[in-house]
Structures are given as C-alpha cells and as structure tokens.
Simulated assay, not measured.
Amino acid sequence: MEVIRSKEFKAKTAWGAKNIANMNGITTRLHWTDKPYKWHVNDGEEVFVVLDGVVEMRFMEEEQEKVTILNVGDIFYASVGTEHVAHPNGEARILVIEKEGSV
C-alpha cells in the first residue's frame, strides 16, 4: 500500500518518473517535467493524464500537426501509431499508462 501525493513529486530532470505499478507489462508512472518531450510513437496505446499544470499536446493526424491544450484532469489517449509530443507550460505532473518499455 502506498499513498502518492502527486503535487509533491518533483524529479531531478525533466520527464523523470516515479514507477507506480507494472501490471502484466502495462506500466503506470508519475512524471514531472518543465520541458517538452520529443516527437515519438509508442509501441502500444498510451493514456496520458494531466494531474498538475497545463500541457500543450501536439499530434499528427492525416499528415497534419494538430494541437490541443490539456488542463488538470484532462486525458489524452494515443492509439497505436499516434505520433505525438507533449509541451508543458511551466511545471507539470503527468500520469502515464503504457506498455512497458515504450518511449
């Protein structure tokens, strides 16, 4: 049993993470960042939940870059093959659920 106070979590570097669970190859991790990630495509599906802060999520759809703003409580679902990149506006804490070993 563990209680995690997500607003208190801060990693040493951008996109540092606290591993919360690994359930049959699906990981749940808490990330802290103040810098953009990189464009990537995951090996499987990804659920991206903003717990603190604001994140600009950029993604490719029909060969065009699209942008959506994610606020606290918003969830971004990346299906298999969705190319995307997260750009936080300041500090953000994000819960990511994805296949173990994904980028």
Score class of each variant (00 low, 15 high):
15 W>Q: 12
16 G>V: 02
16 G>W: 02
17 A>I: 01
17 A>W: 04
19 N>Y: 07
19 N>S: 14
20 I>T: 11
21 A>Q: 06
21 A>Y: 00
21 A>C: 01
21 A>M: 08
22 N>V: 09
22 N>F: 03
23 M>P: 00
23 M>C: 09
24 N>I: 04
24 N>M: 06
24 N>G: 15
24 N>A: 13
25 G>P: 05
25 G>I: 00
25 G>K: 02
26 I>G: 09
27 T>E: 13
27 T>D: 13
27 T>W: 07
28 T>C: 15
28 T>S: 15
29 R>E: 00
29 R>W: 03
30 L>H: 11
30 L>Y: 07
30 L>I: 04
31 H>K: 11
31 H>F: 09
31 H>G: 07
31 H>I: 07
32 W>K: 05
32 W>R: 06
32 W>M: 06
32 W>Y: 09
32 W>D: 14
33 T>F: 04
33 T>L: 05
33 T>D: 06
33 T>Y: 04
34 D>Q: 10
34 D>F: 02
35 K>E: 12
35 K>L: 12
36 P>F: 06
36 P>K: 09
37 Y>M: 09
37 Y>V: 12
37 Y>R: 09
38 K>C: 14
39 W>N: 14
39 W>Y: 09
39 W>F: 06
40 H>L: 10
40 H>Q: 08
40 H>N: 11
41 V>A: 08
42 N>K: 13
42 N>L: 15
43 D>C: 01
44 G>Y: 01
44 G>R: 03
45 E>Y: 05
45 E>D: 07
45 E>F: 02
45 E>N: 08
46 E>V: 05
47 V>F: 11
47 V>N: 01
47 V>I: 09
47 V>T: 07
48 F>L: 03
49 V>A: 15
49 V>W: 05
50 V>G: 04
50 V>Y: 05
50 V>W: 02
50 V>R: 04
51 L>T: 07
51 L>K: 09
52 D>N: 06
52 D>K: 11
52 D>I: 02
52 D>T: 02
53 G>P: 00
53 G>A: 11
